[in-house]
């Protein structure tokens, strides 16, 4: 299948795992690296709107450090379901059934709250432009840590007076013209000047130390799910935050999962792809590798061409790892 949609959706980091080949036309193709993209693309091209459920099982191809490049993956895609939470429960039930099938009796299930973090972030006391910058780094522990360190140090930086918007615009435009760079095809002088000034303003508009401390406290929460959620409730209560809706959703899924002692919640856990929403999860094997991974990704269909957000949830099962897990 064409490789371009995968690069477009998941970027170079995923792209380097693809098995690529070039057609005689010069077009780049890849061996199918997963099933969600072709399923969802096909669903969209057939006209969205109707609830749909897909299950798959078959070979996929990825370059990996260990194991063959061809291996089997199974999974579920629930699209445009009337109730996204019911759909996720079904996904979790499906994942559990798959684990039972392979007699993985003590699974290590890890939940993450993308929706919870987004709800928290909106309510924190900070200048608005910092919110997307923090959100963007959610799930990348090192990058987020570097930003928090930078934000904490910001009040002590020396500042020089800045030229005004018009002067900047003139200067940037001149530089771009001199360098022969198009004023319209990439970043525009207006965009650069605006971000420059925003950056200066931001450096001057500090994120309160109390907010940074709260963020750190929140991100450090990790452990048995019930305890972790209780801790988050305490934190919310203490700081006057309303996290009731996403917390209720998490508790509900926890109930659905049954034995909650096997389930942990990690406040900093999130896939690095921005189309994930709501609740995400993975089931880890004895060696820490993912046996099942999935969650809600309501922004995916929009990214692939749908005109409005459409509820989507699902999971992928690493069949070869499950087989290895249940081997004596």
């Amino acid at each position: 299948m064409p490789a371009d949609p995968y690069f477009d959706l998941a970027g170079e980091e995923f792209g380097r795992r693809l098995m690529l080949t070039t057609a005689t036309t010069g077009q780049e193709y890849c061996l199918r690296p997963e099933y969600t993209l072709p399923i969802v693309t096909d669903y969209i091209s057939n006209g969205v709107g109707q609830p749909a459920a897909f299950a798959y099982f078959g070979p996929i191809f990825r370059q990996r450090q260990d194991g063959p490049a061809e291996f089997e993956q199974a999974g579920l895609e629930l699209l445009a379901q009337p109730d996204g939470d019911v759909a996720l429960d079904q996904v979790l039930t499906f994942a559990r059934a798959a684990l039972d099938l392979y007699a993985v009796s003590v699974p290590n299930i890890r939940l993450g709250g993308v929706g919870l973090f987004e709800t928290l972030l909106v309510q924190l006391d900070m200048p608005d432009p910092w919110r997307p910058r923090i959100r963007h780094r959610f799930g990348h522990t090192e990058a987020l840590e570097r930003l928090l360190v930078r934000l904490a140090a910001a009040p002590n930086l020396e500042r020089t007076p800045q030229p005004g918007y018009d002067a900047l615009l003139t200067e940037i435009t001149e530089q771009m013209v001199d360098a022969g760079i198009s004023l319209s095809q990439g970043r525009t002088p207006d965009e650069i000047a605006a971000r420059y000034l925003e950056q200066q303003a931001l450096d001057a508009e500090h994120v309160p130390a109390a907010t940074l401390a709260l963020l750190r406290d929140y991100l450090a929460i990790s452990g048995p799910a019930l305890q972790a959620l209780t801790r988050i409730e305490q934190l919310a209560h203490q700081h006057g935050l309303d996290l009731a809706t996403p917390l209720r959703a998490l508790r509900r899924h926890l109930n659905e999962l049954g034995n909650s002692s096997e389930v942990s919640f990690d406040a900093s856990f999130s896939p690095r792809l921005d189309y994930y929403t709501g609740v995400v999860f993975e089931v880890l094997g004895r060696g820490g590798q993912a046996l099942v991974s999935g969650g809600q990704y309501d922004r995916l269909l929009e990214r692939l061409g749908a005109t409005a957000p459409i509820a989507a949830s699902g999971c992928a099962i690493w069949v070869d790892r499950l087989e290895a897990e249940c081997a004596p």
């Binding site: 530089q175 760079i181 971000r195």
Partner: peptide, 9 residues
């Protein structure tokens, strides 16, 4: 990594 000099931000 190099960016256009005009990217002052």
């Amino acid at each position: 990594v190099a960016v256009p000099s005009s990217w002052i931000d």
